[in-house]
Amino acid sequence: MKVTGLLAAFAVIAVIGLLPTILGGQWIGIFISTTCFAFAAMGAGFMYSRLGMVSLAQVALMGLGGWVTLRLNHATDLPFEVNLLGGAVATAVLGMLLALPALRMRGLYLALVTLMVAGGLEVVFTAFQFPNGGAGFWGVGTSFSAPMRRPTIAPDDANYLRYCLAVLVLGFLLIEAHRRSAPGRAWALIRRSEAAALASGVNVTFYKTWAFGLSGLLAGAGGGLLAASLGLLDAATFRASESVLLFALVIVGGARFWYGAILTAFLYRVAPGLLNTWGVDADLALVFFGAALLHAVMTAPDGIAGQINDLLGKVRKEQTRDRA
């Protein structure tokens, strides 16, 4: 266990260190986006796999995190990290508010509440756009845009990608820590039966709310990081349909495995980037995308991550058989 842990840590450091050096400017951009959306995918994936709860508002929540981060950036002189934390915490609070209906609903109805939130946020984002240094509460000026500060240790794109990847690893560790401690056990019980969880003294209300807050925190962080990568945000990124699409890709990627979130984010941002690089028409890319989504839902019950896991399992089995 210790050896694999160490190996994993080495692999992570190698990826963070080397990835930006081998990529061109365009692909660094694509990977920054991918990393930002991996946060949202991670939140949606863990809620779905641990608690069976579906959030169709993850991308919209990213927008909220980005909004708060930008607002803080233009209103204060605080360093990027503080603003990012502010955006993430504000989104976590909204996530917890979302948990209110979640205590009484599950399945499709819960998903639809979150979809309504995404729809509402889309309208608000379109009408008010994102702060760009203007005056007033909404902070939107029509004629200029003030700069968005990046972290002082990562002013250029390559280092910013490293920075985002490092924050992403923190996010993974946060979820893993939860999984291995009291909340993880509580969630497992709740997923099996809320009655049983209640009977064994688990505070169901608290742990469900906590899960929503955690998922919101991750989405908010992703939105804040995206805001700093572009310097501004646009409402078109956070449409309700994008939230639905991201959740669909969470299923395709495979929510049960930790690397499912990475696969999801790859499908969401790297795959279109590749199609674009290969010169596939944007409209046709949409057709491929939709068809692939349908195909994956039809054929892979645990998503692509599940298929990888099965494959690895087979390889391992064969190895043990060879040894025997």
Partner: peptide, 14 residues
């Protein structure tokens, strides 16, 4: 907007 930034990165830097 992400694709726009990536396109500029490709043209200007790559």
């Amino acid at each position: 907007p992400e694709l726009a930034a990536q396109a500029a990165a490709k043209l200007l830097k790559d």
